[in-house]
């Protein structure tokens, strides 16, 4: 395995993000399984950027179903991924965002460019 790949593999294993890529629809789903604060945002952002650049999706979905806490670090994390996705022409959407977290996003106005799509949480 290439050195960079191995390093990413390690980060991937330690990060709390599940990756699901649909080759046919070019749909990349990143399911976050952790609280999002400044401490955890770093590994989430590295894994997400790595996957977005590697898979070259048409659409990226951030699944917040298992995120029960987020502070302003999450805003930066989401905007950063929007930038990464935009660079390759992909859209970014969020699903299953809890009320307390939605409140934080609503303060910033970013929901106009990164929408929360209503979807039943399919476990």
């Amino acid at each position: 395995m290439e050195k960079v790949e191995y390093k990413m593999y390690k980060i991937l294993k330690e990060s709390y993000m599940k990756i699901d890529f649909n080759e046919k629809d070019k749909l990349l789903k990143l399911k976050i399984d952790d609280e999002i604060d400044h401490h955890r945002a770093e590994s989430l952002r590295r894994v997400a950027d790595y996957e977005i650049q590697r898979r070259n999706p048409k659409k990226v979905i951030l699944d917040f179903n298992n995120v029960f806490f987020m502070d302003s670090a999450g805003i930066g994390m989401v905007i950063g991924r929007y930038k990464t996705a935009s660079m390759i022409g992909a859209k970014l959407e969020m699903i299953n965002v809890k009320e307390n977290i939605k409140k934080i996003f609503e303060m910033t106005g970013i929901l106009k460019i990164i929408p929360i799509i209503e979807e039943e949480c399919n476990e």
């Binding site: 952002r45 302003s72 670090a73 805003i75 930066g76 994390m77 905007i79 303060m107």
Partner: peptide
């Protein structure tokens, strides 16, 4: 709101506003 000195760390500048 949105003022930050650490944009390179992806800080949003929303801390005190929140």
């Amino acid at each position: 709101p949105l003022y930050t000195t650490k944009a390179e760390l992806e800080r949003s500048g929303m801390g005190f506003t929140i």
